[in-house]
């Protein structure tokens, strides 16, 4: 009766069943999946510029300053202390580097290694950076330290988000 390549009744039913089942699964799961992946889709909140230190206190030698930011973590709002290494470069411009090592996220320190007095040093795995944040070849980090967005207003230094160099 039926030709060989004809879709049999049973096959047809199975295809329709898959279709209807797929529709139901999609109807149920689409809102839920969109709900779950919301953190990926959300644009990062813009971070306000926070006053950190008076410009006059910034020297040529990097100094560590801490400042508090308002952090909004979903429903949880809190104040988080962040730190920055701040100095004036040769042209007198202010540079603010993040102390987070680009290797595995430890905290770097200025001139902490006696052998390298003019570098940032990470105690975890011996990562080193130049004064401008550039990572030194041959040490673990693969990228330079992040720099904070900065702004000088009324003689005060304001810092914002840390961005990769």
């Amino acid at each position: 009766m039926a030709k060989k390549d004809d879709v049999s009744r049973r096959q047809f039913l199975n295809y329709t069943l898959t279709g209807v089942g797929g529709f139901m699964a999609a109807g149920m799961l689409l809102p839920m999946v969109r709900f779950a992946i919301d953190p990926i889709m959300k644009e990062g909140a813009k971070q306000d510029m926070v006053p950190v230190v008076e410009v006059s206190k910034v020297t040529e030698k990097p100094q560590r300053f801490t400042f508090e930011i308002e952090q909004k973590d979903g429903w949880y709002e809190s104040k988080v202390t962040q730190a920055a290494w701040v100095y004036k470069d040769k042209n007198g411009d202010i540079v603010a580097l993040s102390p987070i090592c680009k290797h595995l996220g430890c905290t770097v320190d200025w001139a902490a290694s006696p052998a390298h007095p003019n570098q940032f040093y990470c105690p975890c795995h011996g990562g080193r950076y130049e004064k401008d944040g550039t990572n030194i070849k041959g040490t673990p980090p693969l990228a330079p330290l992040d720099v904070y967005k900065k702004e000088v207003k009324d003689g005060k230094l304001y810092l914002g988000q840390a961005v990769p160099q």
Binding site: T16, L17, V20
Partner: peptide
């Protein structure tokens, strides 16, 4: 399967 389930799922949809 598949005859009745198809109808059931259509109602479900």
């Amino acid at each position: 399967w598949p005859n009745f389930l198809l109808k059931e799922w259509m109602v479900g949809s």
